[in-house]
Write a protein that binds this DNA or RNA. Structure first.
Lengths: 338, 338
DNA sequence: ATGAAAGCGCTAACAT
DNA sequence: ATGTTAGCGCTTTCAT
């Protein structure tokens, strides 16, 4: 069942059928009705592949995330999918599993599939560079959340410096003196930027960083739990633990519970992301909410802009970096103001 | 940069380049090397769209889930993505947001895009039928987890009857007498099957169902919490709450906590799915683990089988229904054996 | 082992 | 307003 079949059935040319079905040009109302009727009757459904080949666009956007199992990325995926659906486009979802090689494979496949654009959260600070650069050279690309240094690519994410400032200020106001930071290995931009934000803002606010007070692991509950056990095995204990994401923070809360440390009386704990479960742990978690839906929408807007630039319908602009400010969500894991 | 460009650069025909790059036919080793070298040098990356048009397959599988934000579906997506990646295929992910109209749109789009197959977890028992039937008529389709009555379509999911039997037996052995069931509205197969399994197994095991002991809501923490508050506002209280999924169960645990009910001493609570957070609530949640990775793999195997049947390389078989047995994961929300 | 030619199903340029 | 024509880039007969 092809366009031509429908055309034959109605007794018009394929072009006319195409025009009716895509409303790309005026067609006599009477013919249009007959065409539509025939298309429905014959169960004609179109061939997106042929259309894509001819129009040179696929109405598909590719996305590569480090892990679909991390609820933060899930909410990014959700935001992207909604916006795309509203625009009549679709999402080709890829999971790099934190592996730069898998990531590179996915990116190559997306280019080969001629997606209209790629949204990527590069899994590794260094190892992701070549594949991201190669991809950006072939197709509009925007980095979301994590970022890698590649010239001319846009990025949308969190203002990590400000984020850490907000958390530390919040903690200082609530009596914190000695702070620690639990994060993942320094192999991605989020971690690096947040660690830097932690150090600088702690200095700025006159907060003392516990000795060996920056503990590395990964973005997971288990890792956060282990890190906090390590932290409290040492003589000088922090009175506040800043965690690089909510998963780590939830692990930290568990460790505190098991160690018999009262939160927030003895130790305050904070996270980042505001995943749904931050509300469901006990004590509930003070954290920073990221505007994931807006971030996803902005990423797609930039992608559209890049596409317009490469087809000549817009002027070139330099790389955009959109750093969103988070919103502090105060809950029970930090104290009330004195 | 097309196949023809590479062919020109080497001085051979496009056919030869195609044969080298897809190893579809023997080519003189020396020429093959030169072709590969030229392809790399020119940065040729192939055009998957043109290839798909010609070969009449896209190496893409579409998936439609009721909500990507539900961790259970996320793990199904993860399983599917991994298996597909191993086979060199890609995943077109769609979220129906529990809306049959959105679901129908997505299914139509997948057919139009000529995906090689569709995996769907239909959001509504009744309203999803027409779109699923229409899709199944056009492309290999398998239902995963949730299911709708459409002739000739395969289904992979959980043995819900057995699941409820396992939970209720576990609870009875641990002293439960009066049980309640908290689930979502009866508009999808999971809910219907589980409610039925609950009733039948309770009767079989001699367990009393609390008056109005089947409470409907949705698959979410908030809903579980509200349902349990309702349940305990009544005179005759259950001593065990069976929840249709872990999200509901986590809500139930919160409600019990807030109501000052000790779990598992006064009330036992169980979930289904074994999402990661079932380990991180307090008390930790007794639940049933679903073999999501295997389920995803089986769904894809059946899809491949259907594809083979429709291209004539395999004999037609009747609809397969694969009901996996869950694994009981005992944790703190149910008691130890007396 | 290689090349020439046809065509997958569609849309857009160019007629009329 | 409609039809005719020419491809999009690839794979696959068919011929050599």
């Amino acid at each position: 069942m092809t366009l031509a079949d429908v055309a034959d059935a109605v007794g018009v040319s394929p072009s006319t059928v195409s025009r009716v079905l895509t409303s790309s040009r005026p067609v006599a109302p009477e013919i249009a009705t007959r065409v539509r009727e025939a298309a429905t009757r014959l169960g004609y459904s179109g061939n997106g592949i042929a259309r894509a080949l001819r129009r040179r666009r696929t109405d598909t956007v590719g996305m590569v995330v480090p892990s679909i199992l991390n609820p933060f990325f899930t909410s990014l995926v959700d935001g992207l999918e909604r916006t795309l659906h509203d625009e009549g486009k679709q999402l080709l979802l890829c999971d790099s599993r934190q592996d730069p090689d898998v990531e590179a494979e996915h990116l190559r496949a997306l280019v080969e599939r001629h997606v209209d654009g790629v949204v990527v959260s590069p899994c590794d600070d260094v190892a992701s560079i070549p594949a991201v650069a190669r991809t950006a050279a072939a197709v509009p690309l925007v980095q979301l959340d994590r970022r890698v240094e590649v010239d001319g690519t846009d990025w949308v994410g969190l203002d990590d410096h400000r984020a850490l400032g907000m958390l530390l200020e919040h903690l200082r106001d609530r009596g914190a003196r000695v702070v620690a930071f639990v994060t993942s290995e320094m192999t991605n931009s989020s971690t690096v930027d947040r660690a830097r934000g932690f150090r600088e803002n702690a200095a700025l606010l006159g907060l003392q960083v516990a000795p060996d007070g920056i503990v590395l692991g990964e973005f997971s509950v288990a890792s956060g739990e282990a890190a906090v056990r390590t932290l409290f095995a040492r003589p000088q204990r922090p009175d506040a633990i800043v965690c690089a994401d909510d998963l780590i923070a939830i692990g930290a809360l568990r460790a505190c519970h098991d160690l018999g440390l009262r939160v927030p009386e003895e130790v305050q704990v904070t996270g980042i992301d505001d995943i749904e479960f931050a509300t469901y742990v006990s004590p509930t978690l003070t954290t920073l909410a990221q505007p994931t839906a807006r971030m996803a929408a902005e990423a797609l807007r930039l992608l559209g802009l890049r596409a317009a630039i490469s087809d000549g319908s817009a002027h070139a602009i330099e790389a955009t970096r959109l750093a969103f400010s988070p919103r502090l969500v105060e809950r029970e894991s930090t104290r009330s103001l004195p």
